[in-house]
């Protein structure tokens, strides 16, 4: 069966303002050597799939390239290389600026991290939810109102709140507006970018349950981006762990969190606070991540912070290799489910 989303060898690099001596910059200008321009490797050769009805988690620290990857997938940003196959069509061939009017625009939608910031302060809740319905489903009048009402109801948003502006809604209500807007056009893939990060635990629970219910009701697939591993564990079938632009580990969520293979995943799991206080393992990452500007393609990105760090780690980049039980890991010393 073809997966719903098939991302292959996706990369996104941003040119950076040249640092270093002015003389060097001048020479660069004269020679116009494009290859000399320094680049941030935000997403580097990333491949994964999402099956229909599947929930895939994407975890990693700030600056690891999660947001860039998500923006490339949702076609807000053009990738530098690689393909984004959705159903059977390669969406990376459509430039991001034209994608707003593409026939597949409605099939990939997104719920933003800060619901307050992602709703225009001058739009009412109704306007916010109606906008995509109007633009992408070309509905108006009664049909529009009915569609918006239905989406609001599905998200547990009372219709009498639809006339309110974002600042007149509570955090949980704003989150519901953000979700209703995304599901109103019946997408097949919903990207959730830290949808509960700004919410209190009591509200978070309600929103997570709502998301789980909507997924089965509407038959969507989720890409759930989060830094909260406890939440990812509850919601996701599979998880991708990203470190500095690369996927370092992938596999079934429970397996990855219970028996992490990659040393980075291990440190990540060990750092998650646990209610029972157990597992406060002294497994700490020292130092800072290496610079994402022009990283050496032959050095493992985790080298320098990795407790293992052997010679081979700085002469050969470990590829993402298959391990046991449908798992993948990019480490010279972890393959085979050690």
């Amino acid at each position: 069966m073809t997966p719903l989303l098939d991302v292959a060898e996706l990369s996104k690099r941003f040119p950076v303002a040249a640092s270093g001596s002015t003389l060097k910059n001048l020479r660069r200008r004269f020679t116009r050597a494009a290859d000399e321009q320094s680049q941030v490797h935000a997403v580097d050769d990333v491949s994964f799939t999402i099956a229909k009805g599947e929930t895939v988690g994407l975890v990693g620290e700030s600056g690891c390239g999660k947001s860039t990857l998500v923006r490339a997938l949702t076609r807000l940003l053009d990738p530098t290389a690689g393909s984004i196959r959705f159903s059977t069509r390669d969406l990376s061939l459509v430039p991001a600026r034209d994608f707003a009017k593409d026939r597949d625009r409605g099939r990939i939608q997104m719920v933003f991290q800060d619901a307050g910031e992602s709703i225009n302060p001058r739009f009412t809740a109704f306007d916010a939810i109606a906008d995509p319905v109007r633009r992408l489903k070309h509905l108006s009048g009664l049909a529009l109102v009915e569609t918006v009402d239905k989406a609001a109801r599905q998200c547990g948003l009372p219709t009498e709140l639809l006339g309110r502006y974002p600042h007149q809604l509570s955090g949980g209500q704003r989150a519901r507006v953000g979700i209703a807007r995304a599901i109103a056009v019946e997408p097949e893939l919903l990207v959730l970018d830290e949808p509960t990060a700004a919410l209190d635990v009591s509200v978070q629970v309600v929103i997570l349950k709502l998301l789980a219910r909507l997924k089965t009701e509407l038959g969507m697939s989720y890409l759930f981006v989060s830094h909260d591993l406890s939440v990812v564990r509850l919601l996701c079938d599979r998880v991708l762990v990203m470190y500095l632009g690369k996927i370092v580990e992938a596999g079934p969520a429970r397996a990855v969190f219970d028996y992490p293979l990659h040393p980075y995943t291990r440190a990540l799991v060990a750092a998650v606070p646990r209610l029972d206080g157990i597992g406060l393992a002294k497994l700490r990452l020292s130092g800072e991540p290496m610079s994402p500007i022009d990283p050496d393609p032959n050095v493992c990105r985790f080298y320098g912070r990795c407790p293992r760090g052997a010679d081979i780690c700085r002469t050969q980049m470990p590829p993402l290799r298959r391990a046991a039980e449908g798992r993948e890991v990019a480490c010279h010393f972890a393959a085979g489910g050690a």
């Binding site: 923006r71 949702t74 807000l76 600026r97 707003a100 009017k101 625009r105 409605g106 939608q109 997104m110 933003f112 991290q113 800060d114 910031e117 992602s118 709703i119 225009n120 302060p121 739009f123 916010a128 906008d131 995509p132 633009r135 992408l136 953000g178 807007r181 995304a182 056009v185």
Partner: peptide, 15 residues
């Protein structure tokens, strides 16, 4: 770069 502008793009709004 505001969230609501990105959201509007996802909703099918051009520049």
């Amino acid at each position: 770069e505001a969230g609501f502008v990105e959201a509007a793009r996802l909703s099918g709004n051009g520049d």
